[in-house]
């Protein structure tokens, strides 16, 4: 009897953490439900659909590019070579640097008058003028933001995939080598199928984070030009902190949460290992 009671007392150690998590994560979720209002406005909110489309497209392009690039980097860094530690650190740097601060750095690179990217494009004859409005042109701004995001988040993807690569037993490769399988064949027959669960986890994780993207775009374009780069998080921020519409902002937050939950559920069902 006393032994049982003392087990419950063990919770005391976890209590500070549980209270903090509850106050910062669970309470706000409840409040968002409680405060939400103006559901009727959703169907007639023409901006919302544009914003949802931007966010979905952004997530799709950014995560796809990250996956391809991250996989290439992971395969490269899985090899043993002299100086690998330094190269790994170099690859990690974009992930570790503050997003908002590096967004300023990218704004400078993208600058239409003095930016270096336009000049490089001009020097390589990819553009007739060095003054390319990377962030001001409605057609370009979206992809400029995707580029900066891919730069910032690919390291994380590469690290996750590297851990997946490290878990593949080397006997499989040895056996394939004996059978005379080439590099390309070894990748498709062993690496890719064995890596699939890691890819699934990494893509879901990254997609959830990218769907909520705020700081990078806020600094780069502020959602402009003409709302072309506005994502749902920027829209919520505008509605609540600029137009002071707390109730509708909470409703939009719920829309974002619903979209996230349904996306990740569908994705997980699609990528579920076919065991049964």
């Amino acid at each position: 009897m006393t032994a049982r009671r003392s087990y419950w007392l063990n919770w005391v150690y976890a209590l500070p953490a549980l209270i903090m998590i509850a106050v910062v994560n669970v309470v706000p979720m409840g409040q968002t439900f409680w405060w939400s209002s103006g559901f009727g406005r959703l169907s007639s909110d023409s901006r919302l659909w544009g914003v949802l489309r931007n966010t979905t497209m952004f997530t799709f392009f950014a995560v796809s590019a990250e996956l391809v690039l991250g996989l290439a980097i992971a395969l490269l860094l899985a090899q043993k070579f002299y100086g690998r530690g330094f190269v790994r650190a170099a690859v990690l740097i974009p992930w570790a640097l503050p997003t908002a601060v590096m967004a300023m750095a990218w704004r400078w690179i993208f600058n239409a008058d003095y930016g270096v990217l336009g000049d490089i494009f001009y020097k390589f004859h990819l553009s007739s003028s060095p003054n390319i409005p990377w962030l001001a042109s409605p057609g370009l701004a979206f992809f400029s933001c995707v580029l900066a995001d891919v730069w910032k988040t690919t390291p994380f993807m590469a690290i996750l995939l590297m851990s997946g690569l490290a878990a593949i037993p080397s006997e499989l490769y040895e056996a394939a080598l004996m059978d005379g399988a080439g590099t390309w064949r070894r990748f498709w027959m062993i690496t890719f199928p064995m890596l699939k669960p890691t890819i699934a986890v990494a893509v879901i994780f990254r997609a959830i984070q990218t769907f909520g993207i705020f700081d990078l775009i806020w600094v780069l374009t502020g959602g402009g030009p003409g709302g072309k780069t506005q994502t749902i998080a920027l829209y919520v921020y505008d509605v609540v902190f600029r137009y002071q519409e707390l109730g509708y902002g909470c409703t939009l937050t719920l829309v974002m949460a619903t979209a996230l939950i349904s996306f990740s559920t569908i994705f997980m069902l699609l990528l579920r290992p076919k065991s049964s």
């Binding site: 976890a14 998590i21 994560n25 979720m29 959830i208 984070q209 909520g212 609540v240 902002g249 937050t253």
Partner: peptide, 24 residues
């Protein structure tokens, strides 16, 4: 059960919490 719930909660981006947190 509690540690699983904690992990689930941690998956959501802070963007979902910012409005209510500011009020709090």
């Amino acid at each position: 059960a509690v540690s699983n719930a904690i992990l689930l909660v941690s998956l959501f981006p802070p963007t979902l919490l910012v409005v209510a947190l500011k009020q709090l």
